[in-house]
Design a protein around this nucleic acid. Structure first.
Lengths: 238, 238
DNA sequence: AAGTGGTCTAGACCACTTC
DNA sequence: AAGTGGTCTAGACCACTTC
């Protein structure tokens, strides 16, 4: 079976940029030269280069060529939430996930509205705290359609739910929408988080969709505000 | 001169979705049928469809077809800051921009570091408050390289700086990086914002790059936390 | 078996930048 | 004039979903 040619070219160039073999502001080989080098067609090279451009590795300039961006300036992840797991793994600080609740519920009005379901649909309610350096700084409240994910265990919830959903269940998550705002802490926040004296929490509402465009998960992440950071990288034009 | 064919096909289908001629979950014509309809090649149709997919209008499923997403679920803007101007224009509430400072400065250490420049480069410092319903809720502190934007006036700053930069100066902004975090208010925040008793502000640091990959603007937007909202829409995979 | 989108090829013409 | 990336064409084979 043939593997994606454009993807492996993309990955090879990413590796060259990350390892420093290709340096910031350096000019890549031209598209025609890359066609020669990889013995492929120009459209395949262009697919690889467009992916590099979309992901912030290079900048293409018409008439001039493609240039390596200074990725060091964009501390990873290039876009998205700087999750507690990433912080923890980068800094090597001790962390863990505490599962407070895992139950099968009938959704209330608010959850019905968020997931666009009726009161008849069963939902997993999962409440977890994320602890970093012995402080619980994020409260994740997940609501997952039971008809999509029939069984969940405490063990799965302590690890990665997405690995289970995509790996074990073979489902494909295709897109997600996030809304970030600030709110006052609830009783639940005060109970399950080490909030100190902060009078607000950063609330990230996350709506997760499957490949068939169905919404199957709503997550509310409530962050202690001193530990919150979000990075967004946006390219202009198409 | 030939106009982009794939772009006009994209725009035509966007219009059909927004006007309701194509309804949520409805199946689009297949790629081969669209080739017939628009009398073009399949790769051109695919470019238009991929753009629709990237911008959240449709979902493509292998073996099945392309389906209209329920864009109503994603209140615009699909991604990015829900800016005070957009809120104001949507709700029709009264708003204005107040220019407090516009001067030509020598950058201090912090600004030198943010813009990757030396103390010799001149910089415009611009401080503006955004007022909505007679409350100043956002403080925008812009630092703009003078060698890129030689002249700025109070009138330009009260309107849209980007319109001036892209329209009048003919420069192309190619990408931007945002960092969102929460901080304590400064003296300046207390002076120029109607902060009420909030003890924190949401800080959005924005780094703006030109087509030649040069960083020319650093903006720090300091939001009163009760008025802050950010929306992010992310597709998985490539 | 027929239809779907995903990948790939080998060409073409174009506008822009460099020399 | 030569080199660059951007758009477009007309084909091919593939894996996946539907019937």
């Amino acid at each position: 079976m043939r593997v994606n040619k454009f993807l492996s070219i993309y990955e090879e160039i990413v590796e060259q940029i990350q390892s420093g073999k290709l340096k910031p502001n350096e000019k890549l080989l031209s598209e025609n030269e890359l066609v020669e080098k990889y013995d492929t067609s120009r459209e395949t090279i262009r697919k690889a280069l467009n992916l590099l451009s979309q992901n912030g590795y290079i900048q293409k300039i018409k008439g001039k060529g493609s240039f390596v961006l200074d990725v060091g300036r964009f501390d990873f992840p290039v876009s998205g939430l700087v999750s507690f797991k990433e912080i923890a793994q980068k800094t090597g600080k001790p962390w863990r996930t505490i599962v407070y609740e895992l139950e099968d519920i009938k959704p209330d009005d608010y959850i019905q509205k968020q997931l666009h379901i009726s009161s008849k649909d069963s939902v997993w309610k999962l409440v977890r705290a994320r602890e970093l350096e012995h402080e619980r700084i994020i409260l994740d409240k997940d609501f997952i359609l039971k008809k999509t994910v029939p069984s969940l265990t405490k063990e799965i919830c302590e690890g990665s739910i997405y690995e289970y959903i995509e790996g074990e269940l073979g489902l494909t998550i295709s897109f997600a929408k996030k809304e970030i705002s600030v709110d006052e802490p609830t009783e639940e926040d005060r109970k399950y988080l080490d909030l100190k004296n902060y009078e607000h929490v950063v609330v990230v509402k996350n709506y997760v969709y499957l490949e068939d465009t169905s919404l199957f998960q709503y997550t509310e992440s409530r962050h202690r505000l001193d530990k919150f950071k979000f990075v967004d990288f946006a390219r202009r034009g198409q």
